[in-house]
Amino acid sequence: MKSAAILSLSVGLFILPHFAIAEGVTVPLPVRKPGHWQITTVAQSIGMKTFDACLTESDNIVTGTEDPNCGKPDVKRIHDEIFVNVVCKTANGTQKISSLLTGDFQTWYRSISKVTFDPPQDGVPHMGATIDGKFIGPTCDEKTIEQPATKK
């Protein structure tokens, strides 16, 4: 009887965390380390573009800024991945942004995002992008901010 109770408790302690992880744990939105980042974006609409940006702790990783037209992001962690959903209102309708984030956000990160437009904008119902960020250093100069990255 005692061994059955211990077995039941052991199984429960093993299974419970896995169900909690599988459903996702609410976490804060990741914050990238402030400083000079090299950002590479791949999207059907623009191809592949690489540029340098000076990021601060207040730069939102999903919307770029704290847009008052966007709702509070729903942020969940499942294992080492962070899932973010946020809805923004625009003059043209609603944008639903769904993103999968990975990385340490101190030296690198990757964002795979899908934006769904309701109604479709210019006939486009949705678009996607993959964004890779690489931390370059803690200081920014005016030459690197929002400029195309130089080939090194």
Rank of each mutant, 00 (worst) to 15 (best):
Lys2Tyr: 14
Lys2Glu: 14
Ser3Thr: 12
Ile6Arg: 12
Ile6Val: 15
Ser8Thr: 10
Leu9Gly: 09
Phe14Lys: 00
His18Ile: 09
Phe19Lys: 10
Ala20Trp: 11
Ala22Lys: 09
Glu23His: 15
Gly24Arg: 08
Val25Gly: 00
Val25Lys: 15
Val25Asn: 08
Leu29Asn: 08
Gly35Tyr: 04
His36Thr: 00
Thr41Met: 13
Val42Tyr: 07
Ala43Glu: 04
Ala43Asp: 04
Gln44His: 06
Lys49Asp: 08
Lys49His: 14
Lys49Trp: 04
Lys49Thr: 12
Phe51Gln: 13
Ala53Ile: 04
Thr56Ser: 14
Thr56Ile: 02
Asn60Val: 03
Val62Met: 09
Val62Pro: 08
Thr63Cys: 01
Gly64Ala: 05
Glu66His: 15
Asp67Pro: 03
Cys70Asn: 05
Lys72Asn: 12
Lys72Arg: 12
Pro73Leu: 05
Arg77Asp: 07
Glu81Cys: 00
Asn85Trp: 01
Val86Asp: 05
Val87Asp: 08
Thr90Arg: 10
Thr90Ser: 14
Ala91Leu: 07
Gly93Lys: 02
Gly93Tyr: 05
Gln95His: 09
Ser98His: 10
Asp104Lys: 02
Ser113Thr: 15
Lys114Phe: 06
Lys114Leu: 09
Val115Ile: 14
Phe117Met: 07
Asp118Arg: 07
Asp122Leu: 14
His126Gly: 00
His126Phe: 10
Gly128Val: 02
Ala129Thr: 04
Thr130Ser: 13
Lys134Pro: 00
Gly137Ile: 03
Thr139Glu: 06
Glu142Pro: 01
Glu142Ser: 14
Lys143Arg: 07
Lys143Asn: 05
Ile145Val: 13
Glu146Arg: 06
Gln147Ser: 12
Pro148Met: 08
Pro148Phe: 09
